[in-house]
């Protein structure tokens, strides 16, 4: 089976944009909602390209261009995008006008820019890419579903390169609406963030390659025995045992209900393995596991786990070669992604 290599990544997030400075010098936040550190998009996008775009689309285009540039890919075979809520600012704009001002004299642009697939199709339009183009929107496993689509197509030899994107933005009204439900409340330094990341994937290692993705699995509402069995199968079909793993990255975010699922599951599934996190730096949103994937890839590329990512300080900081990214969506969808530094 063909393997998949992560060739590049470019993010705009709560951490310094387009940079891996968070590895050694992370920005630390207080408060439960953080906006991304935006670039001056005028330096990146021509006025005519950007004039109808909201911040999510501007971020998406810059991340996509940068990821392709870094990977030296001009035309990917596939563009696959994950988003939980899509261009929610535009959705909100249209919905608000329709509700408050009635159903006449509405502007077409916010509607047109509100559909989820505007993201990937704007990227395709930007580079005139006629290849495969799809979008996944499955709550907190949106990115995992998009990744699995890419992975399957690499395995089947359908594609040699892919651009994988994960995007969610904050917006004033929807943020306040989400505040009504428990899963968007965070403590202990957790916060709601925004996602914007593009990664170039390929079937051959290059000098730029960050790491290799071995395999993954997603399952819906598994019982613990099913989850154990699926993990076992995942490791076995890749010739690995639990002892080959150096760490498990989990999506703890400061919400007790969310975090307890991770702690309970990892205790059974990965006893004695160091646990690491990423949402304390980047926050929580539906597609944040895309950032988690990038964090793991960066750690594998650099062969180290910075101490600030580790959940327990006594864990040994040794050279890391193989990591599992474990993600769940409200304890319904569970996904495990296996990455290594093999080339």
């Amino acid at each position: 089976m063909n393997k998949v290599y992560i060739q590049s990544a470019a993010h705009i997030s709560a951490q310094k944009p387009l940079s891996e400075e968070w590895m050694d010098n992370p920005v630390v936040y207080e408060g439960d909602s953080v906006k991304s550190i935006d670039l001056n998009y005028k330096e990146y996008l021509a006025p005519n390209v950007a004039r109808r775009m909201g911040k999510l689309l501007k971020r998406a285009l810059v991340c996509a261009r940068m990821a392709m540039k870094r990977a030296k890919v001009e035309m990917p075979d596939a563009i696959i995008t994950a988003t939980g809520l899509g261009c929610i600012e535009n959705t909100e704009h249209f919905l608000d006008a329709m509700t408050r001002e009635g159903e006449t004299l509405l502007n077409p642009t916010p509607f047109m820019q509100s559909t989820h697939n505007t993201i990937g199709s704007s990227i395709a339009l930007d580079i005139k890419c006629h290849g495969y183009n799809s979008h996944y929107s499955q709550k907190h496993t949106s990115f995992d579903c998009a990744l699995q689509d890419a992975f399957i197509q690499f395995q089947n030899g359908k594609i040699q390169t892919a651009l994988l994107n994960a995007h969610d933005e904050s917006s004033s009204v929807f943020d306040s609406i989400l505040q009504h439900i428990d899963c968007w409340h965070f403590e202990n330094g957790g916060f709601k963030g925004e996602t914007a990341i593009s990664m170039a994937l390929g079937n051959q290692p290059t000098p730029e390659t960050l790491c290799r993705m071995e395999d993954m699995m997603i399952c819906y509402r598994p019982t613990m025995p099913v989850l154990q069995k699926e993990l076992q199968k995942l490791l076995e079909r890749n010739g690995l045992t639990i002892h080959d793993l150096d760490a498990v990255f989990i999506g703890v975010n400061g919400n007790a209900e969310n975090d307890n699922v991770y702690y309970a599951c990892t205790e059974t599934l990965f006893p004695n393995l160091p646990l690491a996190r990423y949402k304390h730096l980047f926050g929580e949103h539906f597609t944040m596991s895309g950032i988690g994937f990038y964090v793991v890839a960066t750690c594998l590329q650099q062969g180290r786990l910075p101490e600030h990512l580790l959940l327990a300080k006594e864990n040994p900081a040794k050279q890391v070669k193989c990591i599992v990214l474990y993600n769940h969506s409200e304890n319904r969808d569970h996904s495990m992604i296996l990455l290594s530094n093999k080339k």
């Binding site: 697939n117 979008h135 996944y136 929107s137 997603i218 399952c219 819906y220």
Partner: peptide, 22 residues
């Protein structure tokens, strides 16, 4: 929406993905 549909059928569904391309 996909979760609601899946859950209507008890334990039947073991994997979900929602695709959104208009």
């Amino acid at each position: 929406c996909s979760e609601m549909i899946a859950d209507h059928f008890g334990e039947l569904f073991n994997q979900l993905q929602t695709i959104s391309t208009a």
